[in-house]
Design a protein around this nucleic acid. Structure first.
Lengths: 239, 239
DNA sequence: ATTATCTATAGATCTATAGATAATGC
DNA sequence: ATTATCTATAGATCTATAGATAATGC
């Protein structure tokens, strides 16, 4: 956790030759960064605008100058990154399908869907990792923020669903959606990076180790889809 | 969502012949129920003691009379149910192992671990379902409540890990723990019951339908474990 | 005589706004 | 002349406590 709560003056270089639009852009980003870090750890209601302002060394009222209220700030945090990862992932899935044509596989579809996202959080620096943790929180707390996040993410999910159906045409829609439900839960817990797996495994696995997760996740989930597909076919569903 | 925010008087039957200890016990449970419902939707910081008190028609100061402060109330909400489900699940896993001896399977272990929990939330009424949603939130928001919850749940997880190792002795500890990480994420998203899968699937799947999840989840996860085990054996892990 | 509940209130935030000051823009 | 930032503050909570009232306990 490098983005500390310690003041990191935003307005400090008052002598530097920043144009007003640069100043505006920089301060806006600083506010969003600080808000993202704080919201990701404490939730919408666990953060005050004063804390956000203090984190970057400006006055609370400046936050109001740029964002009408707390909720608008929160929404802006989501709107800043969600569309970026959404379009990357759709592109990755489009590219995958274009490259294999009809030969779509479960693993291929899941890799396109998952790896693109894991990479964004893995290589995007701390700000992106904070956003990932926030996304995980929002997803399990529908009261705040879920609408925006879901609206932006729906097309990504539906793109994956389409690929999964193509890979497994014999699979029922119900099984596909439940499978997606499991995939999404596992991904969100990954993004939350709580350090829980570190403790449970005695340090063998680390929450931050997205490379290890990337190496296993698509394979694991593809195996899961096949298993429920098989179960349906055999009618071996236990009561 | 039946537990509404509308006042449901706790102190109303002042004429009824309740002993003081009964009164104490009832009011305590009412406060915990209301707090559980509210915390599960809005998080620790999104709920005021006034809202909790209002939900059951008593004065805010009565909440302080029973619980020293907000954090104590939050912790009490977790302490009330977590040990119950924890011991049930350990018993279920013990019973499973006792019944099959050395012939532990992935599916068997996962069914014991998952189904017991899903049943608690499925048949335990709204209060339990609220607790499940709260657990899901807490798990992804380490700042509040995760310590208590994790401390109470650690033995349950380690019991599962032991069974999984017995079922798959050739599997590496790392793979087992990462597999658990995926299982846990999928379970928590299930408990969150956000209604997201309902929207995505156009109503085909429902968040509340724990029976459908129970029918698929252990099978799906077992397939996942086998797939990563297979991948390790073949050294087919992609870069 | 004890304890469950309520009334009243102090003190501490927190949000949001109005208005002042100090920069940049032309 | 405009706009970025700060000062000051009103108004609205929210937590927590002290003390009053109304029950039950013996």
């Amino acid at each position: 956790m490098v983005v500390s709560d310690a003041p990191r003056r935003a307005g400090t270089p008052k002598s530097s030759a920043r144009s007003k639009s640069e100043q505006r852009a920089e301060t806006t980003q600083h506010i969003l960064d600080a808000a993202e870090a704080l919201f990701s750890r404490h939730g919408l209601h666990g953060v005050t605008l004063g804390q956000v302002a203090k984190a970057i060394g400006v006055h609370t009222s400046l936050v109001h100058y740029y964002f009408s209220d707390k909720r608008a700030l929160f929404d802006a945090v989501i709107e800043r990154r969600a569309p970026v990862t959404a379009s990357k992932r759709i592109q990755a899935m489009d590219a995958y399908e274009a490259s294999v044509g009809e030969a779509v596989t479960l693993e291929g579809a899941l890799h396109a869907f998952l790896d693109t996202d894991l990479d964004a959080y893995r290589t995007g620096g701390e700000a992106w990792r904070n956003f990932g943790a926030l996304a995980a929180q929002v997803a399990n707390t529908p009261e705040w923020g879920a609408e925006i996040m879901n609206r932006l993410m729906d097309p990504v999910v539906m793109r994956l669903i389409a690929l999964l159906k193509k890979a497994m045409p014999e699979m029922s829609d119900e099984d596909i959606f439940w499978g997606y439900h499991f995939v999404s839960g596992a991904l969100l817990t990954t993004l939350a990076r709580t350090g829980r797996i570190d403790v449970l495994s005695g340090g063998l696995c680390r929450s931050e180790d997205f490379a290890s997760i990337k190496r296993r996740m698509a394979t694991f989930m593809a195996g899961g889809f096949r298993a429920i597909c098989e179960q349906e076919r055999n009618g071996t569903a236990p009561a």
